[in-house]
Nucleic acid binder design. Structure first.
Lengths: 353, 353
DNA sequence: TTGTAAGCGTTATCAA
DNA sequence: TTGATAACGCTTACAA
């Protein structure tokens, strides 16, 4: 037998490999591999020897080699939206992580955040890092990226929004009904001149919520055409911009429905700077239920999203798909939001006292 | 020549490999590899043929195989603290990402977030996924993890805090001086009864800032022993808890220095709920400069951290180390913070008018 | 139940 | 400058 000649770069710090363990335990590498991955198929005494050697040598399987050979990395990519609000998403990420980790999967986070990030990095990540799956979190996927994401042949699950153009298993909030809750709340307080501060135009959540808003007006015999709609982008600055528009109106609305809490905060800041007061001069409802709404002055009436459930339901859908279970592409899990009434809204009557 | 028998699992979707390209271009796989990684070492005409084939077949090198062979993944792990505040960290992550991405590195984010995450996942990530480096972001590393992180033989850089016990290249804010700015600002407004709302006990930033706070009192002939220190944890809830403690005091301070913006927000919420007003009854200074401070009512006086610079400086340190440059372990880059005076602080005299 | 050995897709050494 | 080929460390089909 020929002595194997070492080729390639010299390993600076030779890690413990499976053959070291095999040698130490007096078995073959195959047995070590089996003892670790498939304990039932290895006789107890050998298994014990292997485990002892593993512990003694501090062996950890090289995941890169495992991935190359087995064709699966046990890594799930979570796509998060640009400028995502951690106040909102961290809970979701956390619940996804818990669900995946307890099933042996690692999650890595990819964002379309920076200007330099046109998705090419992620594309290559998807194609070349042997990802096992992708969870899309409230993202609109650029078409360039869509191509690669959906062609990679790995399961994709969407959470918090539907991905336009592709039918994939999805977990969403009952966005439309929640917007109904927002508007009905204001109307029940006597407000009939309403304004709508929109999220990113065309965005799934935005479309759903605006639809609920309009339907509620119609149901209450208010002409939706007369309710101003401000085009925002979910962020605080656009809420402040909405306030500027609001302030210039001759016949100002008395109730404002916002598509995010951040915009509600920005809006209230804007009208406060102009000497108006919330809720005395105008009632404002937010959406999401981020922690800040409970600390802001005034505390903000909003829709609480079941973040943990959204995340874990999405992760479980992914795990099912990874387990080979054929999850129908039209699977929709719809979770209910909840109206939290706080101090940014008050009845119109009270105001005129 | 023997026909190679296909062993192992059948590949469902055979991706384009380097040998497909080699075949199409009429060269060897070695030449393809060189044409891509080391263009100068390949004759122009062959290189052109290779590139054409790459483009035509849509070839993307399998990074897993590359990593296994080359021993480097071009992946950097960013360790983020539990419950990290995105409002603050997203800018830092973004600048790190930009710096790394433009040098061919991918960043992955690992957090010590969840209760189930005791660091074992990350340990295995470090050891088994062939990471090239670790950037520790404002983290206190659990000792269990420290072992693996520092023994992995890859460069580690710390950003926003020093890692206790190990000397590694670090980028930090001049925390102590910033705390001096906070305290001096209040003192210059006539406040001499000051309270300090602390971050996590023993935490690097906390220690530095408290030191600056105490020094400023001493320099102004105020006995630091008489200034109450509330033990918080950087988060909003603990700010509200600090307010409850404050409210019970017989002789209430008139100025409050907080170790984070979130605690400042929580504190103001707490005293507002009790019928007090900020800044009329008490002046409050935050720390970090998150966007919310500019939207909260009142807007909050705080310390602005140079987040982009913190991130990119840290990333550049990492890139230097990856390039083989021996970065001294005692490297310290200290960046200056800036006091932003807003409306949560006012002069004590004005109050007594 | 166990061992042998092929092969995952790349890079890098060596010889030409 | 190029090609043949040996690893990288692991899993797994197959034979024993």
């Amino acid at each position: 037998m020929e002595k194997p000649v070492r080729r390639g770069r010299a390993t600076e710090k030779t890690a413990v490999t499976i053959s070291d363990v095999a040698k130490a335990a007096g078995v073959s590498t195959a047995t070590v591999s089996r003892a670790l991955a498939n304990p039932a198929h290895v006789r107890a005494d050998k298994r014990a020897k292997v485990l002892e050697a593993v512990a003694r040598l501090g062996y950890a399987p090289n995941e890169v080699a495992r991935t190359l050979r087995a064709g699966s990395s046990r890594m799930i990519l979570i796509l998060v939206p640009p400028h995502y609000n951690t106040s909102f998403f961290s809970t979701i990420l956390d619940s996804i992580h818990n669900e995946l980790a307890s099933n042996g999967y690692t999650m890595i986070i990819g964002s379309l955040e920076s200007p330099t990030e046109d998705g090419r990095n992620l594309t290559s990540l998807v194609f070349t890092r042997q990802l096992d799956g992708i969870i899309v979190l409230a993202c609109t996927i650029p078409s360039r990226l869509q191509h690669s994401v959906f062609d990679a042949g790995i399961p994709v699950v969407s959470v918090c929004a539907e991905v336009g153009g592709h039918s994939i298993p999805t977990v969403v909030l009952n966005d439309e009904e929640c917007a109904v809750l927002q508007a009905e709340h204001l109307i029940s307080l006597g407000h009939r001149k309403l304004m709508y501060v929109a999220g990113i135009d065309g965005d799934y959540n935005e479309v759903q919520r605006y639809s609920g808003f309009r339907k509620t007006l119609v149901a209450n015999r208010i002409d939706p055409q007369l309710a101003p709609r401000f085009q925002g982008d979910y962020r605080m600055q656009s809420g402040a911009a909405a306030a500027r528009t609001f302030l210039e109106m001759a016949d100002r609305p008395t109730g404002v429905v916002c598509c995010s809490d951040e915009m509600a905060i920005g809006f209230i800041r804007g009208i406060t700077d102009a000497g108006l007061s919330c809720p005395r001069d105008v009632s404002v409802v937010g959406f999401d239920g981020i922690e800040y709404t409970d600390y802001f002055e005034p505390t903000i009436t909003t829709i609480r999203q079941p973040r943990s459930d959204l995340g874990s339901s999405g992760a479980r859908l992914m795990l099912r798909a990874l387990a080979g279970d054929k999850v129908p592409t039209d699977t929709r899990i719809v979770l209910p939001g909840e109206l939290l009434v706080r101090r940014s809204t008050m009845s119109l009557e009270t105001e005129s006292v």
